[in-house]
Amino acid sequence: MKKKNYFMILLAVLVLSIINLTGCSKERVSNKDSYESLEEKGSIVMGLDDTFAPMGFRDDKGELVGFDVDLAEEVFNRIGFEVEFQPIDWSMKETELNSGNIDVIWNGYSITEERKEKVNFTQAYLKNKQIIITLADSSINNKEDLKGKKVAVQNGSSTLEAINKQPEIVATFEGGEPVLFDTNNEAIMDLEAKRVDAVVSDEVLARYYIKQKNPEEYKVLEDNFGEEEYGIGIRKEDKRLIEEINNTLNEMKKDGSYQKVYEKWFGENK
C-alpha cells in the first residue's frame, strides 16, 4: 500500500508540473515589443522549412535559396538587420516563434483565421491561387470542361479543401470525386502519363514544378478554385516589426525590386 502511495505522489507531481509549464508558456506570449533588442543585436532570426521549394530550400551546394529567402534578405537589409536563417520543423513553427527561438515565420505561410489567433500577420506579399493545369494540347479550357474528366489533387492539401467548397463542380468529375495523390509531383507525373486529364494545385508549387520540367508541355487555365495569400508571421507583441516590414514591402513593390525577385523564381511577370 505504501509503495502505491509513493508512486501516486510522483505521478501527481509530474502532472502538476506539466500543467504548470503550459500555464507559464501562455504568460510568456504577453511580453513586450522586442524591436529594440533586435536593433541592439542588429540581426533577426527567420524560421523556415528548408524543404519547401521554391519558397525556401537548399541548392545542390547546400546554400539556402528561394523566393522567400531572397525577398527576406532584401527586406531586412533595407531595415538594417542581418538575417539568420533557422531551419525548423513546419509543425513546430508557432512554438518556435512564441518561445523566442525565431523572430519571424516566413516561408509560404498562408494567412488563415486560425493562425491569426496565434500570431500576427504582415500584409500579404504573395497571392496564391488554386490553379488548373492540363497538357498543352488538351481540349479543357475552363471549369465546365472538367465534366466527365479525371482530375488529380494532392491529398490533405489546401487545394483539396478549396475544390470541396465547390461540390457542384466536383460532382461532375469522372467518378464524382478527384483522384488523390500524396504529392503534387506525383499528380503532375500522372498527367504526363495521360492517366488523368487535369491537375488542380497550389499555384506557387505548380509553377515551380512546371518550370523544372518543360513549360511548353502544359497549359494553365484562366479559371481557378479560389485564392489565398501568404504573409509573414510575427509575435503578437512585436507591433513595430510588422510596421517596418510592411513599409519596406511597399517600397520594394514601388521601385520594382519585388517584381525582380518574383520573376527570378516564378518566371511570369506580375
Binding site: D50, T51, D59, M92
Partner: peptide
C-alpha cells in the same frame, strides 16, 4: 532530430527531393 530543424541525412534527402522533383 528534424523536429528541432537539425539537417541530418533524411532531411537532406527530402530537401533535394522537393527541389528536383
Amino acid at each position: 532530430v528534424y523536429v528541432v530543424g537539425i539537417g541530418e541525412l533524411l532531411r537532406a534527402g527530402k530537401i533535394a527531393s522537393n527541389r528536383d522533383v
